[in-house]
Design a protein around this nucleic acid. Structure first.
Length: 476
RNA sequence: GGCGGUAUAGCCAAGUGGUAAGGCAGAGGACUGCAAAUCCUUUACCCCCAGUUCGAAUCUGGGUGCCGCCUCCA
């Protein structure tokens, strides 16, 4: 089975067929860098990171672009409040974004364009829209002309009347239609501005994505993703702008993907509601891997509820995965050898079968929840095999490690391998203490034995006694 | 009001019409100096009502609950 994605444009699961064979152009809406991003914001970053990895795993050459919105009302207000420039604010929170994203195992995009570094492209895009007759200048502002765009509302499946009924009309606005939205906003005192054919001003919210997407990926791209709340108005507007600018009948985006919301206490987590937890605060409280596990434990389009319980359960799940790998590593050092009664072929077949299932799950609208179920099946297979055999051949360890490694290169929920750091200074010290404890246990000095174990435990090092000796691992 | 999502065990959650994956927690057991980990055993009237079907968690119709979008929002 090949990859199918649920396309919000058609509200159907469709086979994924890229524009250029073997290549994927993928634009993901990034953060407005006026603050730390919160746990809800982290969901699309994590789930679409996994989709990107999966596409690459399947052999596509992916160009992944995720923007930084570094100029808008929120940026301006926040910068004023902090007494710094908008640019300083952006620099600060782009750095903070990168820290948190890195901690959560989110890979860097191929391109991370910033709105303020693309003012010429934005202006050019607006000029094209005006030339094509879909925007008008009104007293220094430029608005998109909704009435000139019959397709408006196709993404969010709303007709114009219903949208107009709900549209906010602000006094003093210079729009022809309440649904018209700003492409360019005339300069206001004390706000950053750039010169343009329509006077000094700044870009509207939606236009940056159109301009930057087109610059780095072209006028017709494969995938565009973001949270469901961006479907309207942001993505609807983007599509209208981009298609109005390109002037071709090719759609801006072939596959629109939207992740479901993250709820906290059964309510949407949002900055405006004030019920948010920053990703920074969350990963101080819970292991980052647990947060990632949590995001991937449900299908990306389902809503998920952020609770202490759920995060603790996720952390326990991560531990199970990590334990299996650390048991595997330890056994590889202590229990490798010839074993005539072990049926390697059968083991390999079972792994292959699970591999097929994993691929099927990921190809089915990247169903990470099902895929993680398969990962646990793999862990179970490895654990029982380790249990049933005292000695196992090299091939078993190679196959098992490769399997876990491959799955984790996509999901990123098992995390770094402690055994890779086993030659550093701290490890040597730990090994010495373990040796001392082993000696104490031989002479039945359990007081000293437990003392050493507790001492290491306090440092986050957990000891486990096995028939092959004592193994250690770091706590999550 | 318009549009959309969702309802599966104590909790989280997958599920393509053929009597329910996986994880967490719990109980009992094996192993262990004690622990930890692991393994074995064990836990589901799939929101309600009606319908289609030989057969429905899955399809249809009607309810009900919860959530979201329609305004800045991942």
């Amino acid at each position: 089975m090949s990859l199918a994605l649920f396309n919000d444009l058609t509200r159907k699961k469709e086979p994924f067929i890229p524009i250029k064979e073997g290549q994927v152009t993928f634009y993901s809406c990034g953060p407005t860098v006026y603050d730390y991003f919160h746990v809800g914001n982290s969901r699309p970053f994590i789930v679409f990171d996994v989709l990107r990895r999966w596409l690459e795993h399947e052999g596509y050459h992916v160009t992944f672009v995720q923007n930084f919105t570094d100029i808008d009302d929120k940026m301006i207000h926040r910068a004023h409040k902090e007494g710094i420039t908008v640019q300083e604010l952006a620099e600060r929170f782009i750095a903070e974004y990168n820290k948190d994203a890195n901690a959560l195992g989110i890979r860097k995009p191929d391109v991370s364009p910033r709105a303020t570094e693309h003012i010429p492209e934005i202006i050019h895009t607006i000029e094209r829209i005006i030339e094509n007759g879909h925007a008008y200048v009104s007293d220094g502002d430029v608005y998109f002309d909704i009435q000139s765009w019959p397709k408006y509302g196709t993404l969010c499946k709303q007709n114009l009347e219903d949208l107009e009924a709900g549209a906010r009309v602000e006094p003093g606005e210079k729009k022809k239609d309440p649904l018209d939205f700003a492409l360019w906003k005339a300069e206001k005192p004390g706000e950053p501005s750039w010169p343009s054919p329509w006077g000094n001003g700044r870009p509207g919210w939606h236009i940056e994505c159109s301009a930057m997407s087109s610059k780095y990926l072209g006028d017709n791209i494969d995938i565009h993703s973001g949270g469901v709340d961006l479907m309207f108005p942001h993505h609807e507007n983007e599509a209208a702008q981009s298609e109005a600018a390109s002037g071709t009948d090719k759609p801006f985006v072939n596959y629109w993907l939207h992740n479901g919301f993250l709820l906290i206490d059964n309510e949407k987590m949002s900055k405006s509601l004030g019920n948010f937890l920053t990703a920074r605060a969350a990963i101080e409280k819970y292991p980052p891997l647990a947060l990632r596990f949590f995001m991937l434990s449900a299908h990306y389009r389902s809503p998920i509820n952020f609770t202490t319980d759920a995060l603790e359960q996720s952390a326990a799940g991560v531990s199970r995965l990590r334990n299996s790998r650390s048991d595997l590593n330890f056994a590889a050092k202590t229990r490798t050898g010839k074993n005539e009664s072990f049926d390697l072929k059968k083991f390999q077949n079972e792994l292959d079968e699970l591999h097929t299932k994993f691929s099927e799950a990921m190809n089915d609208d990247f169903n990470t929840a099902a895929a993680m179920g398969i990962l646990f099946d793999v862990v179970y297979l490895i654990n029982t095999t380790l249990k049933e055999n005292d000695i196992l051949p090299d091939e078993f360890f190679t196959l098992s490690k490769n399997a876990l490694g491959e799955y984790d290169s996509i999901l990123g929920v098992i995390g770094p391998d402690d055994s890779e750091s086993e030659h550093d200074e701290e490890s040597a010290e730990i090994e010495n203490l373990i040796q001392e404890r082993t000696n104490a246990r031989k002479t039945k000095d359990f007081a000293r034995s437990d003392e050493i174990r507790n001492m290491l435990k306090a440092r986050g090092i957990v000891l486990e006694d096995t028939p092959q000796g004592t193994k250690w691992k770091r706590e999550l």
